[in-house]
């Protein structure tokens, strides 16, 4: 897990666009890599939680930072 990479998505775009960016990263990432999403959209927290359930990835943590939601997702399932 020490070689795991962290990718950051800092976007104000709607969840669908954020999700498409997550999938793009996921398609080239390795197991245990982490994606940190910073978004101003509150609904993204629930949406990404459900996305993790659907794709068998793990939402590790949600916090707030400068008025944005910071969502930490660990990729535990290979893409494809």
């Amino acid at each position: 897990m020490s070689n795991a990479k962290t990718f950051i998505i800092d976007s104000n775009d709607v969840c669908s666009v954020t999700l498409s960016n997550i999938v793009k990263i996921w398609s080239n990432a390795s197991i245990n890599d982490v994606i940190v999403v910073k978004t101003s959209w509150k609904a993204s927290v629930k949406e990404l939680e459900r996305w993790c359930q659907e794709t068998n990835n793990v939402m590790e943590n949600v916090s707030t930072e400068n008025g944005k939601y910071v969502i930490r997702i660990r990729l535990t399932t290979p893409f494809g």
Partner: peptide, 12 residues
């Protein structure tokens, strides 16, 4: 349509 389509693809 685009939101639903991309969300669904994101869930594979």
């Amino acid at each position: 349509a685009l939101v639903l389509a991309t969300d669904a693809r994101a869930m594979r």
